[in-house]
Design a protein around this nucleic acid. Structure first.
Lengths: 361, 361
DNA sequence: CTGTTAGCGCGTTCAG
DNA sequence: CTGAACGCGCTAACAG
């Protein structure tokens, strides 16, 4: 993790002191200095790679001492002193959504490359958790935060935008806060999906999305859906599916069934457009339970996001370049941390249509 | 958004408050003391809940000052002084495996309850990453680590077991290291699965597992598989599927096809037993590609782990109580951190058989 | 090239 | 009940 200290990875850590409890007091920089018969400064210099200013002899003694004591510099103390701890906060709305995990991977990759350590927080879809984590992160003095917002308000991030801790938003913007933003080009992605459906001859399109709440991407996708159908001779409607409560889900799906039955009666060819993977999964489960294993021949399904099971279930998707999204987020953040202060930027990545059986009915 | 020019809301934070970069210097405990017209000690006491020793008046002044300055105690500094930072390391082998995410959720839950902050590290199936993260974690002075090991050796965790930083293993043990361990009761789970298959009349069972490497659970499950079939009049074999290289996968799957064809020729009823979800997914994808959407009628498939798509694909599984596993891991760790030093314990949770279409052929 | 001296932000004696 | 002084582990000026 190129975290600057080029100390060799101590292979054998044997002699190290073992105190009473689980706490074997770790060697401090002073211990190393004493062991090497020198001052703390030289050790510090060695740790920070200022090797050129150390005599070969001293250097060798230091290396030996570090090795012998299995010394590891205390990042906390370092951070306290120099005012930066190389910690980045990553606040994820929902790790159960494969999207998040994939973005996370991009974030990690970039963190390693840039020498950061990501502090991952999982709000588990609870606005309250999110708020607490946000506080916690500032408490740990992370140098920046990457936020896949759930219900964050501008006020919660207020100190962020204005001279506070740098932040970049992923997938979702926050009302009134203009921070860097990176995500999918929702308009283009949805347009691509709608176009595909229309080409395939579907003429009754239903957009299924979770309650908008504060989530901008949901709203954007839905808007794009409506806009995309303008002019095409196909019916369109939007269905809200609240995944948080089983009762609500049932009711919503029942209503959807009615719509499907209606369409069938009219001889219309119906297609469901899921706003994301969790919605798609729920829809697929329902359709399968209702129509049997061959459900795809009766209703089409397309979704934004491309979870691992999409291929297995044969669902057409619009894949997001999730890794790049995460990577870019860290890059943006890094620039701000380093002091750059350009106007808020937005990176909208294109999606990729992956056609599978579910829209070939 | 010009970061530096926009003035902070609090008029109080003006003089020398803005350092060079975007960082508006956060208020320190001294700032609060000054603002409240008292000493740091009282603030510290207030923060630590020693409210009884503060005069109502002082207390009110402190609260006001904290509010006005938007003060957040610096956890790093606290940790440095106190010797404990409430940080827990969670080292996960593979977050793409839903199992990990679920365990993670249990860990988070417990952390909140016990007042810890989990530092999540993702080795992404790379032994090297794992080693580096382990070092990094000690560098951040986490109070304990939860390890879903990949290739950790005893030596890497050496300071752990013996008076070093407390550790608990999840799902997999580490050779020669006796630390607390929590995971699935592999023997019972596999036995249950095998019994189900035999009851269903399958008489040619194939266990499919990733290369054992250092992963104890893989080996345990495979052993249990062999043991479970003793006495039953069914053929058994073990197939290794290395998911890391596409070439290896193809070769292995081809061999598997041969076996299936053979079995079919002999009139045997074949069932595949996947050692975990990633393996199951790969198998299902292959079978579907090879045999079509109705593959389940030709080959049975059962798997340990119960990912979200199992229901959709109709795959019989043995579900692990993942949340409990994560929760218990933190509890174990907490006890050790608090000083308890019992002999290494092991918590083996039972699995739950979830029968679906794939074994009803 | 090397050691000495201050703090970073906070908790903790120990006097008032 | 309150505040001053010291130190956690480390880095950053300053001297030598």
């Amino acid at each position: 993790m190129t975290v600057e200290s080029s100390a060799p990875d101590a292979a054998a850590a044997d002699a190290a002191a073992v105190t009473t409890r689980g706490g074997a007091r770790r060697a401090t920089i002073s211990d190393v200095a004493r062991e090497a018969g020198t001052g703390k400064t030289s050790i510090s210099r060695y740790l920070n790679g200022e090797l050129s200013v150390l005599s070969p002899d001293l250097r060798a003694r230091i290396e030996a001492a570090i090795e012998r004591l299995d010394y590891r510099p205390n990042q906390m103390a370092r951070g306290l002193k120099r005012g930066r701890n190389r910690l980045l906060g990553l606040l994820l709305a929902d790790l159960a959504n494969p999207y998040s995990v994939e973005v996370l991977q991009g974030v990690e990759e970039a963190c390693h490359a840039l020498g950061y350590m990501p502090l991952i927080c999982h709000a588990a879809n609870e606005v309250d958790m999110e708020r607490r984590y946000l506080q916690l992160l500032t408490t740990y003095r992370v140098e920046g935060v990457i936020v896949n917002a759930l219900g964050v308000r501008e006020s919660m991030l207020k100190p962020v935008g204005s001279g506070g801790i740098p932040a970049v938003l992923v997938d979702r913007t926050v009302d009134g806060l203009d921070a860097d933003m990176v995500g999918l080009d929702n308009a283009a992605a949805v347009r691509q999906g709608v176009q595909h459906l229309i080409e395939r001859g579907y003429d009754d399109l239903v957009f299924v999305v979770q309650p908008f709440e504060q989530v901008s991407s949901r709203r954007e996708r839905e808007s794009a859906f409506r806009a995309s159908i303008q002019g095409a001779r196909a019916a369109r409607s939007t269905h809200v599916l609240d995944l948080r409560e089983e009762a609500a889900i049932e009711a919503s799906l029942a209503a959807l069934d009615t719509h499907l039955a209606d369409a069938a009666r009219r001889g219309a060819r119906c297609a469901l457009f899921a706003a994301n993977a969790p919605v798609a999964l729920r829809l697929a489960l329902h359709l399968k339970a209702k129509l049997g294993a061959q459900w795809q021949q009766q209703v089409a399904l397309i979704a934004i996001d491309d979870p691992e099971w999409a291929e297995l279930a044969g669902i057409t998707t619009i894949r997001q370049p999730t890794r790049e999204i995460g990577y870019r987020a860290v890059e943006f953040l890094h620039e701000r941390i380093e002091g750059a202060a350009p106007a808020a930027r937005a990176a909208a990545f294109p999606g990729e249509l992956v056609v599978r059986a579910s829209t070939l009915g």
